[in-house]
Design a protein around this nucleic acid. Structure first.
Length: 946
DNA sequence: GCAAGGTC
């Protein structure tokens, strides 16, 4: 009995033969130079195999798809028909001349065979290739039985199992590929001819260029143009944040504001003012927990291309070409795989041992063999055809880029087989006047996989030595200004990721599509240092804009059409739709688009003509254009700023296509949040350069803005009160106004507190307060502070107790009251952004809002969401934060301090500030009340020194 | 002269 096995490619035929024959196969040439036939006996049990003895096995292969498709002769000439006719023109399927010898080989071998086993890759295309093989073999031997071997990796156990338990070829998958082939040809050819013939003659600049359309090419181009236009339209948006620093023996510790930053200046000012008034920081928590840096996932093709581009600075196609070459040389496994999980039977040990000899990572490999090994993590993807990319042999003689690619793959593999890096992170959270700030440090305990994988960075950072409950006056407490930063153009790696995510192309073709749109001159590569950005050409922009102007239900330049095609193909695979119906539905969809494109072709023409002639953008001259002057609130963003002076970012919501990058000007970051006006904190990421709006360096802040004498020297770190600061503190010289007795008020030392009066200019001038009677310079001063008059009608005077941590925050809650009797509430319950029933509060302090009730998040301060609603205003429909009056965020009742104010009726920050502060101009308010020296200038905001 | 998908 003779069995013919046909694989998708020669390498697989060789591997299968080697396994099934235990290395005993004899090979002979075939009519095709790349293909060999392997013969050996194999014990295939009945009923599939012979009743007695071994079957005669021959294993051979094809070279991918055997057949090609093209239109019938009369439709092949471009001017032979209307492009529209291509939607119905007959298509011929044939075997190209260069594959005729492959066909001949199959027929020769099939003629003598009883059983044909298909060993193509176990994916949709593999199933189709299988059907092509069957067609050819049946022509030579109509009685040949056909089976299909299912395997997911070239591992002995699997291959034997697949051979002995073959299944049927899945014709539904083959049908789905038939649909794809026909659809892509018809759509591609029709649109390409329409575009080329319609534009070429009318735009001399195009010369004889083919203006191709492809269902993968155009969405790919669309990504590049979209990002380009996002860069062009970007208008930086200003945000504000509070920056806190403290000097410690271990270095300068920078604290990040929990709110990150605010796009509402008024709100930021008010919160900042609060901090300045009561600048003492209290350490609320010091949390140390294990930190882990995860080892990488097993390597897929898309990952290899992205990493190759980002880390090795090679074009995705080049990386793949090199990997392909290394594969053929036997150094790497098959480089086209979607799989990021290793088979459970995978022989790691054997492969790791092969790396023992390497001078660079051999010692690490030995460490893995000697007990350091840990199974690689499993990703989510498995194409059931190939394992993740890994080294199959040690390569010691490679040079240049080949060496770099091999090294990357090998280090990645060893890293996967190692263990996560372990560390310890310490997060310190402080509270200044109800605002929370945090800082974190890291100690790396075990670098583990990082030892062999230098592409990942993880480094120690100062671990601040703070103690819970400790208080200190920050060395710096400033309100700073930052701007959302311009997104960058796409890099090749970004584009690979976008295409992968949107299902444009396959792992093997993504790089080709990118190369294609470059070859077509739709896109130009622009080098910035070692990073390569993709810039659309005038032609590329004209085409995309033109189609966008025509306006389709499903744009030709977006991924949706292709995704729908994919979806329909899946329906065929699942047996839910017939091949004919799906093809007809997809063709109908594209036909409609085609008719519209043809009818409105002048729009496309004008767009391309204008783009190429009118706008005259030179590709390569685009990356650093100044922002478009018009528009606002476009919400740019940036990546995580490495400059840790900036506020932190965490990558928030985003209106870009999934995964679209918006690297910052320095080209590092990845997209994060899109800023919108007045959107607080939750939208992070925009970091940009931060500029100090308000110079509030240590002494000046204190001198100019601290009206409230609660500031104390830090209890740690040894920095005493500055003289300027001390000037506002009573009992410390001529400016204080001590009162003789404590009148029953005890300080934290349980001694009579001393009464003093604020003498410093400011809102609190003249107010009396209680403080510890000891001198400020006395280390045993307990730092007790309490106003002598409650600032709100409901606040009783507190008696400080030893150990109390509230003594220095006497008045924050004083100006409003939380209505314990919620029955007073009018209307239905209200719920905050965290879905909690909102608490009703009332403003008691005199002022425009006195008596008004409002609702806010019931959680403790610091954990609250930004929800805020006045009871007498309609419930907000949109995000609560947008409607939140800034002053409310700052702490209810702060309105009341500016009793001459009128209720805010205008949204503009300037007006709001004026209303709140009751002064002529926002800038003067800031200067006078908060001690700003540097003034924020903004159109319509009054004049200032800036 | 068109597409996308295999593979050398």
């Amino acid at each position: 009995m003779k069995v013919l096995c046909v694989a998708e490619k020669p390498s697989i035929a060789k591997s299968i033969s080697s396994i099934l024959s235990s290395g005993g196969a004899t090979s002979r040439v075939s009519p095709h130079r790349y293909i060999r036939n392997y013969d050996f006996p194999y014990n295939l049990p009945a009923p599939l195999g012979p009743n007695h003895g071994d079957a005669d096995f021959t294993v051979t292969s094809v070279l991918g798809h055997l057949t090609s498709s093209d239109f019938a002769e009369q439709f092949r000439k471009w001017y032979s028909c209307e492009p529209f006719a291509l939607f119905e023109a007959p298509i011929n399927t044939f075997i190209r001349d260069d594959l005729k010898q492959v066909e001949r080989n199959l027929q020769q071998e099939a003629r003598r065979a009883d059983l044909l086993i298909i060993w193509t890759d176990c994916d949709r295309e593999g199933e189709h290739i299988g059907s092509e093989i069957v067609n050819v073999c049946r022509q030579a031997n109509r009685n040949i039985r056909v089976k299909r071997a299912k395997f997911s990796a070239i591992i002995a156990a699997q291959i034997h199992n697949a051979c002995r338990n073959p299944v049927e070829l899945d014709m539904r998958q083959a049908d789905a590929v038939d649909v794809r082939i026909s659809l892509d040809l018809r759509v591609g050819a029709a649109f390409t001819r329409l575009q080329t013939m319609g534009l070429q003659n009318r735009l001399p600049d195009l010369g004889q260029k083919v203006i191709s359309y492809g269902p993968c090419q155009f969405p790919t181009l669309g990504f590049v143009v979209d990002q380009y236009e996002r860069v062009q339209a970007f208008v930086p948006e200003t945000f504000w944040y509070i920056h806190v620093e403290q000097q410690r023996p271990e270095g300068v510790i920078k604290f990040n504001w929990r709110r990150n930053h605010l796009f509402d200046m008024a709100a930021a000012i008010i919160l900042y003012e609060q901090c300045v008034e009561q600048p003492e920081a209290t350490v609320r928590s010091v949390a140390t927990k294990p930190a882990t840096k995860w080892k990488p996932l097993p390597l897929t093709t898309v990952d290899l291309q992205k990493s190759g581009s980002r880390l090795l600075h090679m074009a995705p196609k080049k990386v793949l070409d090199i990997a392909e070459k290394l594969y053929q040389q036997g150094f790497l496994s098959y480089p086209r795989t979607e799989t990021d999980q290793f088979d459970k039977d995978f022989d790691f040990n054997h492969l790791i041992q092969k790396q023992h000899v390497d001078p660079g990572w051999g010692a690490f490999a030995q460490g893995l063999t000697n007990g350091g090994f840990q199974r690689p993590r499993n990703g989510q993807k498995n194409d059931k055809a190939h394992p993740p990319i890994h080294p199959t042999a040690h390569a010691g003689t490679l040079q240049g880029d080949e060496k770099r690619v091999y090294e990357f793959v090998t280090r990645r593999f060893l890293a996967c087989c190692s263990t996560n890096a372990e560390g310890k992170s310490t997060t310190v959270e402080i509270d200044i006047a109800g605002e929370y700030f945090s800082t974190a440090g890291l100690v790396i305990i075990a670098r583990n996989y990082l030892e062999v994988y230098p592409y990942d960075k993880w480094s120690d950072s100062i671990v601040p030595d703070f103690a819970e409950g400790e208080t200190f006056i920050p060395a710096v407490c400033e309100m700073r200004e930052g701007q959302t930063s311009r997104p960058n153009l796409l890099t090749e790696a970004d584009l690979v990721g976008l295409m992968d995510k949107n299902g444009i192309g396959t792992d093997a073709t993504i790089a080709e599509h990118i190369a294609k749109i470059i070859e077509r001159e739709y896109v130009v590569e622009k080098h910035d240092g070692r990073t390569k950005y993709l810039v659309p050409s005038t032609l590329g922009i004209g085409l995309v804009d033109g189609y966008n102007q025509i306006g389709f239900d499903r744009s030709l330049t977006k991924p949706h059409l292709r995704r729908e095609t994919e979806h329909r193909m899946q329906l065929v695979c699942d047996g839910l739709e017939s091949k004919r119906d799906v093809l007809e539905a997809s063709l109908m969809q594209y036909r409609e688009v085609f008719i519209k494109a043809k009818r409105d072709f002048e729009t496309l023409y004008n767009s391309v003509a204008q783009s190429m002639g009118g706008r005259g953008i030179q590709a390569g001259d685009i990356a650093r254009r100044p922002p478009h002057p018009a528009g606002r609130g476009n919400g740019g963003n940036g990546g995580n700023n490495d400059d840790d002076d900036g506020p932190p970012s965490d990558g928030g919501g985003d209106e870009r296509p999934p995964g679209a990058p918006a690297p910052r000007a320095n080209g590092k970051g990845k997209a994060a949040g899109t800023a919108s006006t007045a959107k607080a904190t939750k939208t992070k990421a925009p970091t940009a350069k931060t500029t100090t709006v308000k110079r509030a360096t240590k002494p000046k802040v204190k001198a100019s803005s601290v009206e409230n004498p609660v500031s104390q020297p830090a209890t740690h770190g040894g920095s005493g009160p500055s003289s300027e600061f001390a000037a506002v503190l009573p009992g410390n010289g001529s400016e204080g106004a001590p009162a003789p007795t404590g009148a029953g008020v005890l300080c934290k030392c349980e001694e009579s507190a001393v009464h003093r009066t604020v003498v410093k200019e400011g809102a609190n001038k003249g107010k009396g307060f209680w403080a510890c009677a000891k001198a400020m310079t006395d280390a045993t001063n307990c730092k007790f502070f309490e106003w002598d008059q409650p600032l709100a009608t409901t606040t009783p005077t507190k008696r400080a107790l030893p150990g109390s941590d509230i003594t220095n925050r006497p008045t924050q809650r004083a100006k409003t009251s939380h209505d314990t009797d919620q029955d007073q509430a009018k209307g239905p319950k209200r719920f905050c952004s965290c879905k909690q029933e909102a608490l009703r509060w009332t403003v008691h302090k005199e002022g425009p809002n006195c008596g008004r009730a409002f609702y806010k998040c019931p959680k403790p301060q610091g954990e609250q969401c930004d929800f805020f609603e006045w009871e007498d205003e309609p419930k907000s429909k949109g995000p609560a934060a947008k409607r939140t009056p800034p002053a409310a965020k700052a702490g209810e009742g702060r309105f009341s301090r500016y009793s001459q104010c009128e209720p805010a009726t205008d949204d503009s920050n300037a007006n709001l500030i004026m209303l709140l502060f009751g002064r002529q101009s926002a800038t003067s308010v800031i200067e006078a009340d908060i001690g700003l020296r540097t003034v924020i200038t903004r159109p319509g905001w009054g004049k200032g020194p800036n």
